[in-house]
Simulated assay, not measured.
Amino acid sequence: MKQSRYSETRILAILRQAEGGMPIAELCREHGMSNASFYKWRAKYGGMDTLMISSMKALEDENCRLKKMFAELSLQNELLRERLWGENNAAISAPGNGRVGRSEAKCQHCAGLPDVWGERDMLSLCSPAEE
């Protein structure tokens, strides 16, 4: 994220000057910023004090941290699924004519992974109609 030239306290001071009646064009010229920046700040920070801004920054940081954590856990989950079910999908797919029937797939799968899946575990994954 790009670092701003202006701190939150300075932004609040500029917004207070504008609330005090100073023309916006003159205010922007004095501080060396664009009108668009001023209006963006007013939309984001209008009516806030320093305490509210610091709490908003803390929430934004926590949100960013949680998004990164979610992305890492989603990637781990996907890798684990590929590891567990990738071998299963390879056993279910037939090389020539599409998919193999469920009973053949169970046998192939159990034969390929005898230590991980037992017959009881494989049957518990199937609905009663498929058994």
Rank of each mutant, 00 (worst) to 15 (best):
residue 46 G to Q: 00
residue 5 R to I: 03
residue 44 K to Y: 05
residue 103 S to D: 15
residue 99 R to K: 14
residue 31 H to M: 00
residue 68 K to W: 05
residue 86 G to Y: 02
residue 112 G to A: 15
residue 85 W to T: 03
residue 7 S to N: 01
residue 70 F to M: 13
residue 57 K to S: 03
residue 32 G to F: 05
residue 67 K to S: 03
residue 85 W to V: 07
residue 2 K to Q: 11
residue 45 Y to R: 04
residue 46 G to K: 05
residue 46 G to P: 00
residue 101 G to T: 03
residue 18 A to N: 03
residue 125 L to D: 06
residue 25 A to L: 06
residue 92 I to P: 07
residue 34 S to W: 01
residue 90 A to S: 07
residue 129 A to D: 09
residue 5 R to H: 13
residue 81 R to D: 15
residue 56 M to F: 02
residue 68 K to T: 08
residue 11 I to D: 03
residue 71 A to Q: 08
residue 10 R to G: 01
residue 23 P to T: 01
residue 131 E to G: 09
residue 131 E to Q: 15
residue 126 C to M: 14
residue 124 S to D: 14
residue 81 R to Y: 09
residue 41 W to Y: 08
residue 113 L to W: 04
residue 45 Y to F: 06
residue 84 L to F: 11
residue 108 Q to F: 14
residue 123 L to K: 10
residue 2 K to H: 12
residue 70 F to Y: 11
residue 39 Y to A: 02
residue 87 E to G: 10
residue 64 C to D: 13
residue 56 M to L: 06
residue 120 R to Y: 14
residue 53 I to E: 05
residue 19 E to Q: 09
residue 114 P to M: 02
residue 32 G to D: 06
residue 54 S to C: 02
residue 60 E to A: 08
residue 45 Y to G: 01
residue 57 K to V: 08
residue 32 G to W: 01
residue 91 A to I: 08
residue 90 A to H: 09
residue 64 C to N: 13
residue 77 N to I: 09
residue 112 G to K: 15
residue 57 K to Y: 04
residue 38 F to S: 00
residue 2 K to L: 12
residue 12 L to V: 05
residue 4 S to A: 06
residue 23 P to L: 05
residue 112 G to M: 14
residue 97 N to R: 14
residue 94 A to R: 07
residue 127 S to G: 06
residue 95 P to A: 04
residue 114 P to E: 02
residue 130 E to D: 09
residue 29 R to P: 02
residue 49 D to I: 00
residue 92 I to Q: 12
residue 105 A to W: 02
residue 89 N to I: 11
residue 21 G to H: 01
residue 81 R to I: 07
residue 97 N to P: 07
residue 48 M to V: 02
residue 49 D to W: 05
residue 74 S to H: 04
residue 57 K to C: 04
residue 55 S to N: 12
residue 105 A to F: 02
residue 96 G to T: 13
residue 3 Q to S: 11
residue 104 E to W: 04
residue 12 L to I: 00
residue 107 C to R: 14
residue 68 K to R: 10
residue 61 D to A: 10
residue 69 M to V: 10
residue 77 N to H: 15
residue 23 P to Y: 03
residue 79 L to W: 07
residue 1 M to N: 11
residue 124 S to K: 15
residue 83 R to F: 09
residue 48 M to P: 00
residue 97 N to T: 13
residue 32 G to Y: 03
residue 84 L to E: 10
residue 100 V to N: 09
residue 18 A to K: 03
residue 38 F to L: 03
residue 26 E to Q: 07
residue 14 I to A: 00
residue 110 C to G: 11
residue 130 E to S: 11
residue 92 I to F: 11
residue 90 A to F: 05
residue 11 I to T: 12
residue 41 W to K: 01
residue 35 N to D: 14
residue 35 N to M: 14
residue 23 P to C: 02
residue 116 V to G: 04
residue 100 V to Y: 03
residue 112 G to V: 11
residue 119 E to M: 13
residue 49 D to N: 09
residue 17 Q to F: 10
residue 67 K to R: 12
residue 126 C to L: 13
residue 69 M to L: 15
residue 44 K to R: 15
residue 104 E to L: 14
residue 67 K to N: 08
residue 43 A to T: 04
residue 25 A to R: 05
residue 120 R to M: 13
residue 4 S to C: 06
residue 89 N to Y: 14
residue 61 D to L: 11
residue 105 A to Y: 04
